[in-house]
Design a protein around this nucleic acid. Structure first.
Length: 428
DNA sequence: TCTGGGGTCCTAGGACCC
DNA sequence: TCTGGGGTCCTAGGACCC
């Protein structure tokens, strides 16, 4: 059996930990740049506010005092997430952290009779120790556990824990679950399935396997198996990410080449830092930029270019250098850019970087590595030990002076209740 | 006026090789 | 005159997730 622990309305719940006066009120948390709604309290869901709604469409509600909006504060959410996860990790043999607000608990070795009690205790403990409400769904597969956690969240009677431990409960839950709510059925597949008269998860599992195989691709067949109770999305995901991306929309559109280059340098330097943090190095560096796709009156341009390095790298100097080389091949004046970013890919462990290549300067590489190390240390110390801040005391000349987030709108940011003052922007 | 950011996996089709 | 077939690798794009 798996237990899926899911934090309820996570970002909103984090804000409420330090603003208990907002309990019972309509609260939302906004994406970067205060663009879209990415987390909603139950009260704001009841008002009909949808996930992903552009904030400007409901800003009048906030102005009138009917809705509390927060800019996203990832330093806070990341910190509270760590606390939740460590409580969970202490309670079971193995935990798989799936996202900032979700984790699977593996229950092997635990007496099945004691699982409900264990889960109820975890709900209480997380609420008491961290202040965040969680729901837990227990079922034979991950996809079913996800469904169980929805029920745990939706119906008060479960008190936060829903056990799907009999065949009758499984079938009942499938019958009550619209096909579009199933994990793995997204906005494209749902209408397609509905057209084929598959309206609920039960309709889906009642179709024969060979029909599913003929009609859909492999991931959908797996979802079908999982709903039958046959676990097949078992594998833990790799520790090492395969791509790392840093990108932002800008509060204003940017035309100026130099200004854009400074932003791209910042994004690249942050990618390099993320690589070093996980002991990785990348061979490919991609720079991309977007004009404002919502402005149909303006010329559109969505270029990207990739530079392949001879030897995988993770120093700011090399990654920024490559990102700017890519930038120069795609930048065209006359467009107003709304967003840009850098992706590093083709990632390898930095210890395994292949150096025996003709023309590779070992001495230069070793100096760059030492310089990166020193910069990281100084910046970490300057940020009060945490260094998830966007403000680096030492940076390359190609980077912007000032704060990483300058030029990004965040008008409603809460305080840094649990981390240092310089952590205003956390960048994952 | 104002519309996020960061990932994964799968598949089809092209390039290339023998 | 007659111009194959099969395999692998890579990439772009699409679908999904939170």
């Amino acid at each position: 059996m798996y237990a899926l622990v899911d934090c309820n309305n996570f970002f909103v719940s984090c804000e409420r930990v330090f603003r208990p006066d907002l309990e019972g009120k309509a609260v939302v948390v906004l994406s970067n740049n205060d663009g879209c709604i990415v987390s909603r309290s139950n009260e704001s869901k009841d008002m009909g506010i949808k996930m992903g709604t552009p904030f400007f469409k409901v800003k009048h509600l906030a102005d009138a005092g009917h809705l509390h909006a927060f800019s996203s504060n990832y330093a806070l959410y990341g910190d509270l997430s760590d606390r939740v996860m460590s409580i969970l990790a202490d309670a079971v043999p193995r935990i798989e952290i799936y996202s900032i607000d979700e984790a699977y608990l593996h229950l092997e070795g635990i007496d099945p009779g004691k699982v409900p009690q264990l889960c109820r205790e975890l709900v209480d403990k997380v609420r008491k120790w961290v202040g965040v409400p969680v729901s837990i769904g227990v079922a034979p597969t991950k996809t079913l556990a996800k469904i169980a956690s929805h029920f745990a969240k939706k119906y008060k009677g479960y008190k936060g824990v829903c056990m799907m431990d009999t065949e009758a409960k499984r079938l009942k839950a499938l019958e009550l679950t619209p096909i579009g709510d199933v994990w793995g059925v997204g906005r494209r597949l749902a209408p397609k399935m509905q057209q084929m008269s598959v309206m609920t998860a039960l309709d889906f599992v009642n179709r024969p396997k060979d029909w599913v195989e003929r009609t859909f691709s492999l991931p959908v067949v797996r979802t079908w198996e999982e709903l039958q109770g046959h676990a097949c999305v078992e594998e833990e995901r790799e520790e090492r990410r395969k791509t790392i991306c840093t990108s932002r929309s800008f509060a204003d559109m940017i035309e100026d080449e130099n200004e854009l280059m400074l932003r791209v340098s910042d994004f690249a330097a942050l990618c390099a830092k993320k690589l070093r943090e996980e002991g990785s190095a990348a061979c490919d560096v991609t720079t991309f930029m977007y004009t404002n796709r919502f402005r149909e009156d303006l010329q559109q341009y969505f270029p990207s270019a990739t530079i392949r390095l001879d030897v995988a790298a993770n120093s700011a100097q090399e990654i920024v250098g490559a990102a700017l080389r890519a930038f120069r091949t795609i930048y065209r004046p006359g467009f107003r850019y709304k967003k840009a970013g850098v992706i590093v890919s083709n990632i390898v462990p930095s210890g395994a970087v292949q150096g025996a290549i003709f023309g590779f300067d070992e001495e230069l590489r070793s100096r760059q590595d030492r310089l990166s190390e020193v910069m990281d240390k100084v910046n970490r110390a300057a940020a009060g030990g945490t260094d998830s801040s966007g403000k680096s005391l030492i940076r390359l000349a190609a980077q912007r002076p000032g704060h990483f987030a300058d030029g990004i709108r965040r008008d409603f940011c809460s305080r840094l209740y649990t981390t240092s003052l310089d952590d205003i922007i956390e960048v994952r």
